[in-house]
């Protein structure tokens, strides 16, 4: 009998509300725990998820009539890496390169500091941002844990 290959993972969709920031990072880290990450690796994952979700909460639906959703897709690759995609359907960014610059922020009043995207990039193995004004933004990153990262 042929063995079926199933790629493990999950999808999660929730409103872009600040009280969901902790929920999102806890869920992704609970799933990642099975990949045997070190405490530091798990801690880095918590930060990257939190930064990505917070960006959606703060920027994506700013000024919109209705708060939209954030969709998180998590997959374990054949090599044991964790692939995470965090997507919104909000305002998007016209200049992604500029937003990636340290200390650049469109929300100086909110004391955000402009370090979210650079920190995500530093802590991930692979990191990419796709965005289209008026359509939304997708942040995709990959983390390697423990023995799979050596």
């Amino acid at each position: 009998m042929k063995e079926r290959k199933v790629q493990n993972g999950f999808q999660l969709e929730f409103p872009a509300l600040s009280e969901n920031e902790a929920f999102a990072r806890q869920i992704v880290c609970a799933f990642a725990a099975r990949l045997d990450p070190t405490l530091e690796e798990l801690s880095d994952l918590r930060v990257v998820v939190s930064e990505a979700v917070t960006n959606c909460v703060v920027h994506a639906y700013k000024g919109a009539n209705k708060v939209g959703n954030i969709k998180i897709t998590v997959r374990v690759t054949g090599k044991g890496a964790l692939k995470v995609r965090i997507k919104d359907t909000g305002c998007g960014m016209a200049d992604v390169e500029r937003c990636m610059q340290p200390l650049y922020t469109t929300d100086p009043e909110g004391e955000r500091g402009g370090m979210g995207l650079p920190i995500m990039q530093s802590l991930s193995k692979k990191f990419a941002v796709k965005s289209k004004p008026g359509k939304g933004t997708t942040v995709a990153f990959e983390m390697l844990f423990g023995s799979s990262s050596t």
């Binding site: 990072r25 004391e111 500091g113």
Partner: peptide, 13 residues
């Protein structure tokens, strides 16, 4: 136990 860049903003502020 946990701090992200919002914490940096809080400290710098």
């Amino acid at each position: 136990d946990f701090m992200d860049s919002s914490g940096l903003g809080l400290i710098l502020g």
